[in-house]
């Protein structure tokens, strides 16, 4: 239990995070911190969070995802959540949870495309890029 950790993989300019365990406070806070460190270390422009193995998203989990997206944006990186199960999506709406600042895509491939389009547009606008 003490060794539980969510891996963060670097894929080109992006980070891929696959959540396959139930999140609780300490694990979630560690994940937030690790993602922020990884963005800085790898100069990542995007983070993809795969939740296809997640069976519920409650307001706690929703807040974690929003926090990650907000912190990432401050560091000039976009966040896309991919693979949400249909039942989870329906439940989120009924729960009334706003996933503020988060892009979503059906799967990893589409998420990658979305991140590319978001960050390419950013690069064009950058004078110093």
């Amino acid at each position: 239990m003490a060794m539980e950790r969510i891996p963060i993989l670097k894929v080109g300019r992006f980070l891929l995070v696959t959540i396959q365990v139930d999140l609780y406070d300490r694990l979630a806070l560690e994940l937030e911190a690790n993602i922020i460190t990884a963005i800085t270390n790898h100069h990542a422009k995007g983070i993809m969070i795969d939740i296809s193995a997640v069976s519920i998203v409650d307001s706690f989990m929703g807040r974690i995802l929003s926090n990650i997206a907000t912190m990432a944006r401050i560091l000039d990186a976009e966040t896309v959540v991919v693979g949400m199960q249909p039942a989870v999506a329906i439940t989120l709406v009924e729960l009334g949870l706003p996933l503020t600042g988060i892009y979503t895509a059906l799967n990893v491939e589409k998420g990658m495309g979305l991140l590319r389009s978001k960050t390419v547009a950013d690069n064009d606008a950058d004078f110093d890029d």
Binding site: I56, D58, A87, I90, T91, E94, L95
Partner: peptide, 13 residues
């Protein structure tokens, strides 16, 4: 599955 997901989410909340 949908009702189960709703129930599990309500339980967690």
């Amino acid at each position: 599955l949908l009702n189960l997901t709703k129930l599990m989410t309500a339980t967690s909340e």
